[in-house]
């Protein structure tokens, strides 16, 4: 059996070594962690318990031996990708806001206009600097409806830390049947404040 010897190491080194061995083990595989530090022992066992990982412990001459078996449902990572890639505010934001005032982009054919708007919203995610906020008013609010074709992209943007402000009057006016899928219901004062304090406003 693999032995991870952390004797002489202090917190959090023994836990890091344990975590590494867990990641490298297959489900059902066991390995042994050795530590001679009471605090490290407490922390490693607390970590294992919190993550429903089975282990057995024995002690001899001030050295604890933990036999750890990797189980299937060990770490709680319900939507791990969300947290690692989108959920945390690491994205650089600019001092500008995007005003979505219509469900179409530009003048001309309606079908093309819808398509362009969908592409525009998708493209925001790839910008080097995200907008500080996006405001949605008039027909623009319909893009935040649950059944909107861009709802997944808007949700991603929100996870990336972009605040989506929706004009509540507009939502009532257009009586969004499926309901609002993302964003914060907001009033004209908040929207006006956001626009007035922005460095610049981008309107597709």
């Amino acid at each position: 059996m693999r032995v991870v010897d952390t004797k002489g190491q202090l917190c959090p080194a023994p836990l890091i070594a344990t975590r590494k061995a867990l990641k490298e083990s297959a489900v059902g595989e066991s390995f042994i962690v050795l530590t001679d530090n009471q605090t490290s022992l407490n922390n490693v066992t607390r970590f294992l318990k919190d993550n429903n990982t089975a282990f057995q412990m024995s002690e001899k001459g001030g050295v604890w031996s933990l036999t750890i078996t990797k189980s299937a449902g060990e770490m709680v990572h319900p939507e791990a990708e969300d947290y690692c890639d989108n959920g945390i505010n690491h994205f650089e934001k600019g001092n500008y806001i995007i005003a979505i005032t219509s469900d179409k982009m530009g003048e001309g054919d309606d079908h093309l206009g819808h398509l362009l708007m969908a592409n525009f919203i998708k493209a925001i995610k790839d910008l080097d600097r995200l907008p500080a906020k996006m405001v949605f008013y008039n027909k623009g609010v319909t893009l935040a409806a649950k059944d909107s074709p861009v709802i997944a992209d808007l949700k991603d943007l929100e996870k990336m830390g972009v605040e989506l402000l929706l004009c509540a009057t507009c939502i009532n006016y257009y009586a969004l049947e499926s309901g609002v899928g993302t964003g914060i219901l907001s009033n004209m004062y908040v929207i006006a404040e956001a626009m007035a304090s922005a460095g610049n406003i981008v309107r597709p």
Binding site: P12, L15, I88
Partner: peptide
Amino acid sequence: GKVPLIGSTYHLIDDGCIPGASF
């Protein structure tokens, strides 16, 4: 999920870098 983090903090925790003070 809304808490801003310094750089690679999330990945360090995922690698088991949890200081004793946290426990």
